[in-house]
């Protein structure tokens, strides 16, 4: 608002040449403002704006161009049990007893006490919802006017370094521990430089196009896709062979089907920047 006001006022005093200069400086100004806006949206909508950028894909071969990701919004936290309960109450076809097997297997919300009750104690309310299928996660995000993040968006956002620690150490430390009976609340792992929390260290997360990863035994004969990753040459095609955590994520994704539910697999939503 303020910027527009300035331009309008300035227009009266400056020639076209000046206006172009001013336009550029307003643009620059806009950029610095946007970082403030990021903080604001974090506080308000529970989402942060992830800036446009590129990253080196995990399984593209070394000659491949970097993957470009366009700016988007992402939830700061994974969706909690309490939030998911609101969705189920508003859309009873997604309750445990009503959901179609086409959309969720028999483990759907098995950690809940009943269709519309999470648990007797409130312990689980703010832990991330798990045991939800891809269809359920997609439906939740749609209900919120959002969508699931794309695989590339998720990987890009998850690459951001946590504030004060070594990302690989956090992840491997997490992998080495069994799942606790009750998952910790969202926000218990450190946030990364985009202010996203729990991208690693709490749960696995669904992505929109998780089925774009193929690492089955038949990847030599069948899918042309990702042969760079696990074919006869071992893992020579992978860009960072020491990235065990990424190996685990991609292998896990390739093992999923859209109606599967897993007791440490949840999700968070994303949104386009209009």
């Amino acid at each position: 608002m303020e910027n527009k006001f300035l331009t309008q006022r300035a227009g009266r005093f400056f020639t076209d040449k000046h206006r172009i200069c001013l336009f550029i400086s307003v643009l620059l100004c806009e950029f610095s403002v946007s970082s403030v806006a990021t903080m604001k949206s974090f506080a308000q909508g529970g989402m942060v704006k992830i800036p446009t950028g590129t990253y080196k894909g995990f399984y593209e071969n070394s000659q491949a161009e970097k993957i470009r990701v366009k700016t988007f919004y992402m939830d700061v936290h994974a969706v909690t049990n309490a939030q998911y309960l609101e969705f189920v109450k508003a859309n009873p076809i997604w309750s445990r007893s009503k959901v179609s097997r086409l959309y969720a297997d028999a483990g759907y919300l098995k950690h809940w006490e009943s269709d519309f009750k999470i648990s007797r104690d409130k312990k689980m309310d703010n832990s991330p919802v798990v045991n939800v299928s891809w269809f359920a996660a997609s439906a939740y995000c749609k209900w919120k006017g959002k969508r699931l993040p794309g695989l590339e968006e998720w990987e890009y956002a998850a690459k951001a370094k946590p504030d004060h620690s070594d990302i690989d150490k956090i992840i491997l430390n997490w992998y080495s521990k069994p799942n606790p009976v009750t998952l910790p609340n969202v926000g218990s792992a450190p946030s990364n430089s985009y202010k996203l929390q729990d991208m690693h260290g709490l749960i696995w997360e669904w992505v929109y196009d998780f089925n774009s990863v193929m690492l089955e035994g038949d990847s030599r004969s069948n899918a042309e896709l990702n042969r760079n990753m696990f074919c006869a040459a071992g893992s020579a095609g992978v860009s960072d062979r020491k990235n065990y955590a990424a190996f685990m994520r991609f292998a896990f994704r390739s093992s999923l089907k859209a109606n599967y539910t897993v007791n440490n697999l949840g999700f968070r939503c994303s949104k386009n920047v209009e």
Binding site: N211, M214, K257
Partner: peptide, 8 residues
């Protein structure tokens, strides 16, 4: 997803 076909 329903037909268990993977693509990219």
């Amino acid at each position: 997803m329903i037909l268990n076909i993977k693509y990219k």
